[in-house]
Design a protein around this nucleic acid. Sequence first.
DNA 1: TAGATTGTTAATCGATTAACAATC
DNA 2: TAGATTGTTAATCGATTAACAATC
Lengths: 208, 208
Amino acid sequence: LAQLRRVVLERLMRYYRFLSETTLRRPAKTVTSGQIAEALDIDPTQVRKDFGAIGLLGMGRVGFEVCEVCRGIRHVLGFDEPYEAVMIGAGHLGSALMAYKNFAGYGLDIVAVFDNDPRKIGSKVAGRTVQSMRSLKPFIRRHNIRLAILTTPADVSQKLVDRVVSAGVKAIWNFAPIQVAVPPDVFVRNEHISLGLSEIAYHLAQEI
Amino acid sequence: LAQLRRVVLERLMRYYRFLSETTLRRPAKTVTSGQIAEALDIDPTQVRKDFGAIGLLGMGRVGFEVCEVCRGIRHVLGFDEPYEAVMIGAGHLGSALMAYKNFAGYGLDIVAVFDNDPRKIGSKVAGRTVQSMRSLKPFIRRHNIRLAILTTPADVSQKLVDRVVSAGVKAIWNFAPIQVAVPPDVFVRNEHISLGLSEIAYHLAQEI
DNA sequence: TAGATTGTTAATCGATTAACAATC
DNA sequence: TAGATTGTTAATCGATTAACAATC
């Protein structure tokens, strides 16, 4: 199975969400590439190609089995292999993410939250006690954590990244408004708000 | 000036952030496409193409004037034309976004926040009093608001979108975990957390 | 069977990268 | 001047779309 590109992963996720949502409302055994394509405004061939790329086969004149597709996507995207993460930063954004219920359905379990603010340390966020940043590194080591979610201010973020990477973290989900540097074997996914902002601002300015 | 695609907008934003950040640290009058390219891991030709697309000209052997580039990007992306927005939802995420200081630098001013929860209505979020959803539509009409930022639960989001669109909103910045339907003249930017999640989960599963 | 849908090959489209004369 | 950097054209690459025989 070849390495899947980002755009493909995103489409797979959209298929998955669409199938999960619609089958809840009106259960269907099968779905055609055309139905998915129309709902998500994608070419039907694209859907079949993507399914083919992850080894899903359809049936002529019938389409694809919904359950099989969902199972296939779950498997490929790795939702079935639970992984634990630490949240770095217990501010508004960190708390918002901690409170997000759906993560469990994607295999993600945020097992601890850390902050530097003495007023926050010891308090509870979504049922977890906020710990001091000093405990961060030992915690990651002890629990073999591979993912760190970063919701800290720009100025301290790089230092914290260095620390968690040296403790063994293999992926950073970066919500901090800064580009962080990591060794080549560490994966970073950036969620810079400014990218969305640029698109919004541009379209509003265009429209006048 | 041709319509700019999403990837171009995102690159422009990255250039802008890079130039703003680095000139703060070590002020430079000029910058070459090669310097930008190396820092952002982009092809130098790409940088020159993007600059050319928005009418920025460099100087042989010298490069581009930093100030001129920043001004050009600000102008094209529309950061210089201030626009007001309403925040729909005063939960963790809504509060986090309200508290974000940098928006002003991009022309965005969140002038009001709305929620359905009686316990939140009347309280302050980042200096703004949370208003009832009942005031949403009249407020948008009265102030000619063109952007709504959506941080509500999935189940109520579509209804709220319909309402703000009928009140005249022209763009939706959607942080709700659902695909919202809008008329063709309304622009939607989705920030579904699940897309990032799929990439993270996939890479962690691959790595094993 | 007839007809809708698949899987796959070929064609198109657009975006990225390479090459290089023009420029300061 | 010499040499680094630009602007632009051409070449490459990859992704999307079209076409269509095979299938149920």
